[in-house]
Amino acid sequence: MIAGKVAGSKPCLGYGAKVGLAFIGREALRPDTYADTVHRVAVDIATYDQQSCLAPQTVFVETNGALTPREVAQLLGGELENQRRKYPRSVLSDAENVAIQRVRTDTEMRALMGGKAAVFASGHSTAWSVLYRELDGSGADEDVASLMSPLNRTVNVVAVPDLLDAARRLTSCRGWLQSCGVAVDSTRLFGLADILAAVGVNRICPLGEMDRAKSGWHHDGGFNLIDLLRAVDVERGSDAYSDSFDMDME
C-alpha cells in the first residue's frame, strides 16, 4: 500500500471507492427537456467508461413525467449507442466482460420472476448496459450493493415516485457516496441537496458535468490541499516591533 511507503512525518491523503448517483426530476422529462437530459446522463456514463469515482452508477428517475422511467432507460440506451459510435469503449478483460454479463442475467431473471425490471443492452457485446428496476415499495433503505455497477458503461436506472424519498433511503450508504448529478427545478434543488448532504453526498452538480470537478473542489468534503501545507504565523505587531530596531526608521 502507498500509505506504508510514506514517511511518518508526511501526511497521506487516501481515498477509497465511491459511488456516483444521478437524480432526474419529472420536470427534466418534459417534451422540451427530456432529450437534453438523457444526452447529458449518457455523457456522464461514457466519459472515462465510468472509471472515475465521479461517474454515475445509478440514476434515479421520477415518475409522472412526460416520459416514464422505463422509456428513459430505453432512450438512454440509444444515447449510449451514439456515444459508442463516436467514442468506442476501451477493450475489457475477460473478468470485466463476465461481470457485466452476470448483472445483465441477474436483472433478466428478476424480470422473469415477476419483478419490475428490464435490460436494455448493446447487441453481441458488452459495450453498454442499462439495467432498469423500480424502487422497492416497502420503504426499506437502499444498500450500497444495489447502487453499484460493474462500470464500463453499465448503469442502473431506478424508477421512483419521489426523489426526496429516494434520497432519504440512502442513509445506509453513507461513506460510499460522493458526487451526484441532478436535474430538478430551482424550487426543489436545495431541499434535495440538504437530504443528499445528510446521507453523505459531498458534491452536487448539473447532469453532464459529473466528470468535470473543478480543481479546487472539496474532495470527499475536506480541505485537502490545505492539509498538505504547513502554516507559519507572523503575528500582528511583529513588523512594528522590528521597525524599532531599524536606524533608518523615523
Rank of each mutant, 00 (worst) to 15 (best):
L29D: 14
A140T: 13
A193S: 12
G77F: 01
A17P: 13
L192M: 09
V144Q: 06
P69A: 07
A22F: 01
L112K: 09
G137D: 15
F245L: 10
Q74V: 13
W128N: 12
F223A: 15
M249C: 15
F190W: 14
N224M: 13
V98D: 14
V41E: 07
G16Q: 02
A193D: 13
L76V: 11
S9N: 14
D248N: 11
R212L: 15
L147H: 04
V201G: 09
G77V: 06
D106L: 10
S52I: 08
D243L: 11
V182T: 11
Y34D: 14
G14T: 08
L92F: 00
Q57C: 07
N152G: 12
C205P: 00
N82F: 03
V158T: 14
A118N: 09
E81P: 03
R70E: 15
T126I: 08
K5Q: 12
S125W: 02
A159D: 10
T107D: 01
Y87M: 08
A73S: 12
T58K: 02
R102L: 12
N64K: 08
S179R: 06
G77T: 05
L147N: 08
L196T: 07
D44M: 07
A95P: 00
G137E: 13
K116W: 02
V144C: 12
E209G: 04
V91Q: 15
N202H: 06
Y132V: 01
K18G: 05
A159F: 04
V201E: 04
L76Q: 05
S149N: 02
L147T: 12
L75C: 01
V234A: 12
E250Y: 03
V103Y: 03
D227V: 01
K214C: 14
E209M: 11
G237E: 12
E27G: 09
D106M: 08
C180P: 02
T154V: 09
A3Q: 00
D246P: 09
L135Y: 01
A73R: 02
T68H: 00
V41P: 10
A17F: 03
R104N: 13
A66F: 15
